[in-house]
Write a protein that binds this DNA or RNA. Sequence first.
DNA 1: CTGGCGTTCGTAGCGCTACG
DNA 2: CGTAGCGCTACGAACGCCAG
Length: 316
Amino acid sequence: MANTNFENFLEQIWDKKIDLSEADFNLKTLTAILYLGRYQINRGDDRITFNFHQIRELLNLDDSVPINQQIKKAIFQLYFKPFKYYKLIGNCSWYLRVIRGIMKSSDDTEFKKEWAVIIDSVLLEHILQSYFKKILIPNQFFLNYHLLSDEAIKLYFSMKLQEQLAGNKEWRIDEIMEFASICKSTFYRSIKYLIQFDLVKKHAGNRRRYEKATYSINKNHTANKGYTPFSASVINNMLYNTTKKLKNGEIKLYSYLCYLAGGIGEIRKSPAEIGLLIGKEPNLISKLADILHEKDYIIKETYIGEDNQSCCRYII
DNA sequence: CTGGCGTTCGTAGCGCTACG
DNA sequence: CGTAGCGCTACGAACGCCAG
């Protein structure tokens, strides 16, 4: 196949080695749609728009009535029937109706117009993680921000990054201290909050058998309130980059602004409101936002609001 | 003795307040 | 909203205690 980007995409999102020429037609069609919509997915949309010409081109198919009917049939089957794929989370097989909705013109008899499909959120999360290397932070984490200390938040991001980079899911205390570059007392102080809020799980060791306690990120949250995607490189920069590294308080504000914006975009909230949500004084929010602006993480702009008061807005 | 975890203490960063 | 100064809190390194 000519398109190496598409081949690369195919390899990254499905865990089994798939030869496209032999693949099931539904799988081919689905992969093509996801590939065409990859930038929409990266922006956080769950809706992908495309036309049949684009699909035929990707899959090297002729423009004929039977082929178009076959593509149409595949899309409707993905809408009506469960589709099986493997290891999206953990080692499980998932059966999902991957297409949740279809929008098409009612007069598109020649398959020349634009279609739109809504993709299931589990599949979207999977693509963000496996293809765009995004780190997905559960929104439940942000809801506790006013109760979590700055250092606990930094520790959680370090663990999420380590999970993505190194692939290991469990660490001993000395390993965590090393990659998060914190000392023991800070570790113990922070980890107890992360455990309390159901974000991290502790697996007790056995002293007699010299097994140390290990810690892992908790995946099974009691309440699933969705995710906020972060790119691994941004988290890496804010934790470790020598020139762009953020301090704990700055990490807390920056990550919270990302959550408010849903990954990217603009936030208009007063420092007092934000301060209340993350447990900081309004003037500190202003100071920290300045630092984030200087370090190129956000753009902070002041404008004159309705009541002639100067206000701030933040752009990720 | 070893590993887990709490305590101590100097210091860096933060909260509070007042003012422009 | 932004800045400045003062007092305080939370940080990390070192040390100490104690269960296994």
